[in-house]
Structure formats: structure tokens, C-alpha cells
Design a protein around this nucleic acid. Structure first.
Lengths: 250, 250
DNA sequence: ACAATCAACTCGTCTATACAACAAAGCTTA
DNA sequence: TAAGCTTTGTTGTATAGACGAGTTGATTGT
């Protein structure tokens, strides 16, 4: 039996100590090992019984963590053989752009942004829905308006689950740097997209300087930590000024 | 306590009797009830303990079935309240789907399509632009309207460069089979996307049965052969009925 | 009438145990 | 040697029980 070349000591270290179930912590710890390439693709990971012995938890708990990570594509399991780090999923280049500033710069255009809102607040009904928390749950909210050549090109709304980033509470919201801090503690490097066409609200019309009938491209993103949504973002682009580009196939 | 208006007798009937685990059979039976609309959206489904009593299985087995169906988007669960049939907005896995019929079928909905146009013609200015040829260049043009549960969900316009598929000229355009032939000679398996939000033309409003201010998601696709564009397609979805779904990162 | 409390019911998690199915390696035997 | 058997370790499934947490509605007390 080929030994998985891993150490299970301190597996739960440097994890946010927000109270969360054991299986979720285990999932997070494992997916972190995989994302950071500490565990290589196709490498065998510890068996269920090894996790059980090392962590003193029930096998069913370990089983649930590994089973869910398998369903999410991080692992591959073979009965009788073991559990292995999965090959990376193919993904479209379509949404690789996380930074509209770079994108605009790449087009040789001028980029400018305004921080419209940055605050600690209670979740509205919509925000609670997006984050999967209760209404009035603590959140951090930011709204940024991006310009391309002095024309508004994107409204970026961001909501961060406060209980998953508690240390952020200490920040001084008046400072520009605290926005940069928010970006750092809650990066959106991996998650889900939802793309649709919508009409802007009156406030958004004003901010984007478009008419109420301007069709807009709305991109919603969510990043997860275990079962919790850490950050939910909503990007709104005027249809007449923005296109998404990408490849398919291969 | 609002009673779930369902019967649990014969729940496992008319299921393929291929040997499969209990939780899988339960999943299949439930998703069948949902797909067939026998259980309505937002309706409460039986609680775990009700399944336990009715089926004489362990609660953890029921729990697994319901939990996985929740992860797959069929159900929504609320602690203390119950389990409910989830609303499902139309969404497709980020551009991997080339066949909206399959996508709709996968959602358990009814798919139907109308072939509105199928002809050999000269390229209009717009079509020439999309294909990168001169105006009046020979093309094959098709327009198909797709329905999901009798609601228009997509207009699919396709333009094929005739000089790259000359043998197609021989086809009888009156026949339905010639559309299938067009799909086969000019498959769109690899290429580029352009996604944007637009307003529909009056003709498109009529075809999609939407108002002129309905924002629509427009997806343009092009497939290449060497330096030539073989096929250009334009897919138009009403914003209120369609979302694109996908992952990013990893 | 109103408020607080309680009871019943829901799902969420975790444990401990058991057996089955599968795979690899070692052992036994012809 | 080669085929078959056994052992060990893996994941897959199923069970019974326990406690926690959230919601609702009834009961109780003021």
C-alpha cells in the first residue's frame, strides 16, 4: 500500500475558528491542502481510518467530508483502493477576469474607481439571501463604481459574512486602506457564477448614467468556505458598454 | 403544522429494479415526483421521520437522500420548518451545453422547438460581419425557437459560410432532416463566445413573447476552421427566464 | 389582552457499530 | 510455476441512538 506522504498534525491550524461543524472544518482543511498544491494531483490522501485515528472523530464524519469533496470534484475515490486528489476541472476562460482594472488597462483605456459605500451593517433580506444567513446578520458592505475612460462600466457590490471575518470589525471604515484590507481578507478566487440580463434600478441608472430601459449584464459570484458563503458579489454592467468574451470547447 | 399533501405508499414503484442503495432509490423516487410536477414547487415534502416510518429505514439514510438532493438543487431545507421543493430558475452549466434540448430535459422540463427559417441566402451586413465575409456572400441561415414548458426560452440564429460547406447546397430545404444535416456538417464544438445584455427587436419580442423592455441575454458564438469562420450563432434568452451558471477558480 | 413559557416537531450534526464490496498482496497447494 | 485461497486494508452502505438548534403553536401566568 503506497503511503500517502502527508502529515496530519496541525491539520486544523490556521483555519478561522468560527464555530463550524467538524466535517466542514475537515473539508476546508483538505481543500486548502489541495488548492495550495501541498497535496499533489493524483496523490493518495489519508484513508478514512487514518483521519479517524489522527483526529479522534467518527468515521462517518470523515466519510461525509470526503464524500462531499468528491461530489464537488476535489477528490476521486475508489473502493478498495483509496482516495485521491482529482485532476483539475476544465474551465472556460470566460470568467477568469477578476479585476476589471487590469482588463481596462489591457484595452489601453483609462481606469478609475470610486468607493461609494464601505460599512459594517445588518444584512437586508436580499443580502441575507445571497449569503445564506438570517436577515440582520452582521455583514460588511462595499459598493464601488468603476469607470472606463470616464464612462461608468461596472457597479461592484460586495457583501462579506461578518462572522467569518470577525477581525475586520476593528478596521477604520473611513480609510481607503480598509477597502484594500477587505479585498485581502475575502478574496474571490474560487466559486460560482450566475449570469443574467436585468434592468437597473433607478439608483443604478443614475450611477451608471444610463436610461431605465438599458439592459444590463448582471454577474453574481459566491465564494464558499465549507458550507458557508463568505462573500457574495454582484457586478452590474451596462449592456451597451460591456461584453464578456471567452472560449468554449477543447 | 401544514401537512405535506403527498402519499408515500408505493413510493418505490415503477423504479428500475436494478440493485441500488436505498438512499439512491429514495433520491430517484423523490426527484421523479418533482420532475413530474406531482410535487409542486414550494410544497413541503414529508419530514425525515415520516419517511422513516413509511419506509422502515434509518433516519440517516433518509437524511442522506434529502441532503444530496438539496445539494443538487432539487430541494430546500429549513431547520425547524421542513423540506420544500426548490424553485429552479433555468440555468445552464456555463456554456458547456451546446444542446438546449438536453439542458431542458435534464431539468425535467418539456422541450419543444420550432424551425422558423431554413434557407440558402446572401449574407446581410450583420451576418457578413459575424462571418467575416463580404455582404452578399453565400450563406445558409436557420432560425429555431426553443420552448421550455411551452414558454419561449431561446431564439437560435445560425449562419453558415456556404463556401465552407458547399455540399449542403444539394439539400432540400423543405425537409426537417436538412436542419439536422446542417447541425451535423457545422457542429459548434469549439470556438469563441461573446456574452452581452441587449434589448430584443420587435420581431424577437413577438417570438419570445416578451415586452420590448425585457433585457435579454445574447450569446454569440463563432467556430473557426483555420482563418475562416465556419458558423456564427446568436442565442437570445429572455432575462426573466434564463440564467447562465458556472464555476470559476481552481 | 398580552407576554412568557413550554412542548412538539423540524432539520443538523456526531457517534459507534456492523456488514458488504472491492482491491492488492501474500500464502497455499496442485 | 501457476492457479486458487486467505488476509488485510480500503470505501460503500445502513442502522440506532443521542444531542443541538430553529420554528411553531399551545399553554400558562400576569
Amino acid at each position: 500500500m503506497s503511503e500517502p506522504i502527508v502529515s496530519l498534525t496541525n491539520l486544523f491550524d490556521d483555519l478561522p475558528d468560527a464555530p463550524q461543524p467538524i466535517y466542514a472544518k475537515l473539508k476546508q482543511a483538505i481543500s486548502q491542502k489541495i488548492s495550495s498544491s501541498e497535496w499533489d494531483v493524483n496523490q493518495r490522501v489519508p484513508s478514512e481510518s487514518e483521519f479517524v485515528k489522527a483526529l479522534s472523530v467518527s468515521r462517518m464524519t470523515v466519510n461525509r467530508a470526503l464524500r462531499e469533496l468528491t461530489a464537488e470534484g476535489f477528490l476521486v475515490r475508489h473502493q478498495g483502493l483509496g482516495t485521491f486528489v482529482a485532476e483539475k476541472k476544465a474551465h472556460s476562460a470566460l470568467f477568469e477576469v477578476h479585476n476589471i482594472a487590469e482588463e481596462i488597462a489591457a484595452r489601453g483605456h483609462k481606469h478609475r474607481s470610486e468607493l461609494l459605500v464601505l460599512e459594517s451593517a445588518k444584512a437586508t433580506v436580499e443580502e441575507a439571501m445571497m449569503l445564506g444567513v438570517r436577515t440582520n446578520h452582521g455583514i460588511f458592505r462595499s459598493v464601488v463604481l468603476h469607470y472606463e475612460n470616464d464612462l461608468p462600466i461596472q457597479i461592484e457590490e460586495r457583501v462579506v459574512n461578518a462572522s467569518l471575518a470577525p477581525e475586520y470589525e476593528q478596521q477604520d471604515f473611513a480609510k481607503q486602506t480598509s477597502y484594500e484590507y477587505l479585498m485581502r481578507v475575502a478574496p474571490m478566487t474560487e466559486g460560482e457564477h450566475l449570469v443574467e440580463a436585468v434592468l437597473p434600478t433607478p439608483q443604478e441608472c443614475e450611477r451608471l448614467q444610463v436610461s431605465p430601459t438599458e439592459p444590463c449584464l448582471q454577474i453574481q459570484r459566491r465564494t464558499w468556505a465549507g458550507n458557508d458563503i463568505v462573500t457574495a458579489a454582484r457586478l452590474l454592467h451596462p449592456g451597451s458598454r460591456f461584453q464578456l468574451f471567452g472560449h468554449f470547447g477543447r
